[in-house]
Each structure stands twice: as structure tokens, then as C-alpha cells.
């Protein structure tokens, strides 16, 4: 507990907890009876926790999602699956440790599981590029997914990255192409794909593992096109305004469920997944199995179509009033029957 990172908005609660601890020590050393006061404060503390954690703001969730001690992909892989066998390398350039993946069993069923992997300490983080993959990481993921597709294994991905690694070597080796290829190939696999955002889902680097039949999110996870810090520095030339950007950007699981970008939310214990990994892993496993059970009876064609339709319908727009449109003379003179027909077919 001592090493646990505390967030600024948790300070009133931790102050109160400290006060209770002091009272308890006092009572012990002086033999005085503070039990009534302690009970009262503990009740108050519980109430404060409920109020805070049930009404977390998007920015507060963002801070929880980014906690160093938040469970990583490997933590969940070991807690949810059995018989995990990690597999390495993209067969082209290197083994990017920012992505882990391999074979495992889920309730006895062989699956391929892949995730972004942050480091556990500074040294580990440097080796894993803080969970930000190079092209070789995305290509390793693709190789493992192609393998899963060949052997008809469901694919489970765990998303937890600030984004693809922004470095010159990553660009030189085709960062854009690596991400783009994953998006296209994932769309075409004839096996069930379930993607779970467990921490931070940042930009294309997250989406490169995110084209699934079902996309789920942990309760405090976030998912966005650009990090709130990046948005703040573009909008207000001030990255420290990330909290304000987080509110505007609709990054929480609840928001994304409303936009039908995700299908389900996985409950976390009060305060966040790091408070109780076993509890979170159990909830994750339940939801994962529930959704997988719905997908397993589907044919390859059905799975591909289902995934296509999921992404096909995302996006909001409108058709402007025809009257306000500037119609070039030539069109007005000769609209052409075929032309209007084509317009219709293009709008399906």
C-alpha cells in the first residue's frame, strides 16, 4: 500500500485515512477510547469514497487509466487465461517488446492473445518503449493474428498505449503502413476478434489492435483519436490543459458506449482496477466469455460481415439542403437519368 500512487483528487480521502490511523495509534498507546470517533470517521470516509468514485470526471478517469500500478496486458493475460505461451518477433526486423502476444487458453479454448505492454519499472519501460510500438510491433501482432486466422483460433487483443512510437526509425520502417495494414487485415479475418481497452487507448497505435467484432472497455479506461495532452497543446498551445480537453473529447467508456463505438463496459473495483486485480480479471473474463460465446457459432463470412457493419455505421453527418447547393449550369441543363440513378446507388 505504501508504494501506491495517490492522485491529487484522492488526497482528502487519504488525509482522513491518515487521521483515523493516528487516532487508532493514540488509542492504543494511551489506552483511551476513541472508538466512537473512529467509527464516525470511517463511515464518513466510506461515504466520501463512494461519492468520489461513483462520479469520476473524464479527467479523473484519465489519471486512473494512466496510473503506473494499473494492471498491464501481461497481468490480465496471466489472471484471465491459462497455458500462456509467449511468441516473439515479426520475422522481418525485430521483436518489439511494446507488444506481447502468443497462445493461451480461455476456459480451455485455445485462443491467440495480443496486447500493448507497458513496463513495470523504468528499465522495463525503456525496453518496452513505454508501450508505444514501432512498426515491428504492429507487424508481430499481424503475424500472430494471421496465424490465429489460419488455425481458426479466436483473437483477443488488449489495448493499452499512449500511441504508436513517434520516432524517426519508426517512420523510416513504415509506421503508417504497419498500422494501416493491420486495420485492413483485421477487417478480413474469419475468426472472432474481441478487443478490450484496459488502460489508455491512444490514436492509431491503439486502433491497430482494435478492429474487432466486439470492442469492450474497462470502466476507467479511455480511448481517443489524439491524447488529451496533444489536443490541449494544439487547441490552446498548452499541454497542461489536458484535463479540460479530456472533458471535451468524450473519451470515457460511458461516452463510447453511447456512440456505439464499444459494445460493453467491464466493471472495476472502487478506485480502479489496481485496487483489486483478481476482481477486475474475473469481471473481464465473464464479459469476454459472454461475447465470445455469441461469436463462436458464426461462420467466417458472418464474422467478417458483422465486423464490417460494426465499423461501417460509425460516423455522424448530414445532407445539406439541396437549395443551398450551388448547382453548376451544365448540371441544371442536363441532369441525365443515369446520373441521378448513380447518385442513388452511391448513397446506399
Amino acid at each position: 500500500m505504501a508504494a501506491e500512487q495517490m492522485l491529487p483528487f484522492e488526497k482528502p480521502i487519504s488525509d482522513l485515512r491518515e487521521k483515523i490511523a493516528t487516532l487508532k495509534t493514540l488509542a492504543e498507546s494511551n489506552g483511551m477510547d476513541f472508538s466512537e470517533e473512529i467509527a464516525r470517521l470511517e463511515e464518513k470516509c466510506k461515504q466520501m469514497e463512494e461519492e468520489l468514485y461513483n462520479e469520476l470526471s473524464p479527467a479523473q478517469k484519465m489519471h486512473i487509466a494512466r496510473l503506473h500500478q494499473r494492471p498491464t496486458s501481461l497481468d490480465f493475460i496471466h489472471a484471465v487465461f491459462t497455458d500462456f505461451m509467449e511468441l516473439h518477433g515479426d520475422r522481418l526486423f525485430a521483436d518489439d517488446l511494446a507488444i506481447v502476444g502468443g497462445l493461451a487458453k480461455l476456459n480451455g479454448l485455445p485462443v491467440t492473445v495480443i496486447g500493448h505492454q507497458r513496463g513495470k519499472d523504468t528499465k522495463d519501460n525503456i525496453a518496452r518503449f513505454f508501450g508505444s510500438p514501432h512498426p515491428e510491433g504492429f507487424r508481430k501482432a499481424l503475424r500472430l493474428m494471421q496465424q490465429a486466422n489460419k488455425f481458426n483460433r479466436p483473437i483477443i487483443t488488449l489495448i493499452d498505449t499512449k500511441g504508436a512510437y513517434p520516432g524517426n526509425t519508426a517512420e523510416e520502417r513504415g509506421q503508417s503502413e504497419a498500422i494501416a495494414r493491420n486495420l485492413r487485415e483485421m477487417a478480413g479475418f474469419g475468426v472472432p476478434i474481441i478487443c478490450i481497452v484496459i488502460g489508455e487507448g491512444g490514436s492509431g497505435g491503439a486502433l491497430a489492435l482494435g478492429v474487432g467484432n466486439r470492442v469492450l472497455m474497462l470502466e476507467n479506461a479511455i480511448y481517443s483519436a489524439i491524447s488529451p495532452n496533444g489536443a490541449a497543446s494544439i487547441l490552446w498551445k498548452d499541454a497542461t490543459k489536458a484535463d479540460i480537453a479530456a472533458e471535451a473529447m468524450k473519451i470515457t467508456a460511458k461516452d463510447l458506449l453511447e456512440f456505439e463505438v464499444i459494445e460493453d463496459i467491464i466493471e472495476e473495483p472502487q478506485g480502479g482496477a489496481h485496487k483489486d486485480l483478481a476482481f477486475t480479471a474475473e469481471r473481464l473474463k465473464e464479459k469476454l466469455w459472454k461475447h465470445l460465446a455469441e461469436l463462436l457459432p458464426m461462420t467466417s463470412e458472418q464474422l467478417i460481415e458483422d465486423r464490417y457493419n460494426k465499423f461501417r455505421k460509425i460516423g455522424e453527418f448530414r445532407m445539406a439542403e439541396a437549395a443551398s447547393k450551388e448547382i453548376p449550369e451544365e448540371v441544371a441543363e442536363e441532369p441525365g437519368a443515369e446520373a441521378s440513378e448513380m447518385t442513388e446507388s452511391a448513397k446506399v
Binding site: A180, L207, A231, V261, I314
Partner: peptide, 10 residues
């Protein structure tokens, strides 16, 4: 934000 990101997948 997220709707923009999803256009990449679409």
C-alpha cells in the same frame, strides 16, 4: 475524436 479515429477502420 473517437468518431474520427474510427474512420480509419471504416
Amino acid at each position: 475524436s473517437i468518431l474520427s479515429l474510427m474512420q480509419m477502420a471504416k
